[in-house]
Design a protein around this nucleic acid. Structure first.
Ligand SMILES: [Zn+2]
Ligand SMILES: [Zn+2]
Ligand SMILES: [Zn+2]
Ligand SMILES: [Zn+2]
Lengths: 152, 152
DNA sequence: TCAGTAAATGCAACTGAGTTGCAAATCCAT
DNA sequence: ATGGATTTGCAACTCAGTTGCATTTACTGA
């Protein structure tokens, strides 16, 4: 396991190295996409920290800046490492309106909005909606074919 | 009251003209900023429709496109008329990190993200964070002065 | 004008993500 | 090792939003 990386990060931001923090941070490091509390708990299985602890750990990690709240979907927050975002702007997140999957768009960049009228814009967050490659293909190529069950 | 406008809109989108729909839509028309269910209920006072009805009416109005869900704050959805948004992009919403107020930035425009790798981007939503004129002034002009209680 | 019917409403009970208070456990500096 | 501050777990709570169902209301067309 990549526990090393997690422990290293915790030391960097001067957070106490508890088993729970290491495990949760490791889960975030290993995640291929943003995850919510339930997914973290599930990925840690039987030895997962309590739900409340997960929220509290996420909160402390967010305070240090090593974790971001990526987006909210269905009233539920998703978290990810913040290591490849600038302070001003993270990558956009894309949700497919057909298959409902959400993913990071690390290759998409947008300019920052221009501050105006005394507003100081410090952070910008972009959400995208549309059709993912799977689903746009399905719509193009056939009639009445829904969601990504095209070629699987 | 501007009930006329609401009734007109309902006719346009072919929704039955119920007292509740007219009232809720009128509340949205009169609102100076996006509002949530509780605020709609409050603004309609004693004669307000039931909470469930408000959610169901909002849902039907959103389906027709005359109302949009503007943003979510503190796990709570805020709604507004969608009449001055393009299909692809609404105006950004700005939340002040100091006084927590959120407002529409109708004068701010951002280009649409470029679709890539088979992704078809149909809609883009932008959230901005920073300091509002009140609060940025407070930070500049003095020491330790919090939130918009500066002048007035 | 007056049924008849589909749609809309209200109520009560529910759901589920996230929070709070507090006692017990754990980390870490000395 | 020891002690005090921090962290954790549990149970109970909060509150926006949803669901099922009985009742009411808006429209159609005779
Ligand atoms: Zn898809
Ligand atoms: Zn991401
Ligand atoms: Zn402010
Ligand atoms: Zn707006």
């Amino acid at each position: 396991m990549t526990t090393d990386k997690a422990e290293e990060l915790l030391a960097e931001v001067k957070l106490r190295r508890t088993r729970q923090r290491v495990d949760i941070l490791t889960a975030l490091i290993n995640a291929k996409a943003p995850v919510n509390q339930a997914q973290i708990m599930e990925s840690l299985g039987k030895s997962s920290p309590n739900k409340v602890t997960i929220y509290r750990v996420l909160e402390s990690l967010i305070e240090t800046g090593i974790v971001h709240q990526a987006y909210i979907q269905d009233r539920c927050a998703y978290y990810e490492l913040g290591h490849n975002c600038t302070a001003q702007q993270c990558h956009p997140h894309f949700t497919c309106i057909s298959c409902k999957e959400t993913r990071c768009m690390k290759d998409v960049e947008l300019p920052m909005a221009k501050s105006s009228d005394g507003f100081v814009i410090k952070h910008q967050q972009v959400r995208l909606e549309g059709l993912c490659p799977n689903c746009s293909q399905a719509v193009e190529g056939s009639t009445g074919n829904q969601a990504g069950t095209t070629n699987g």
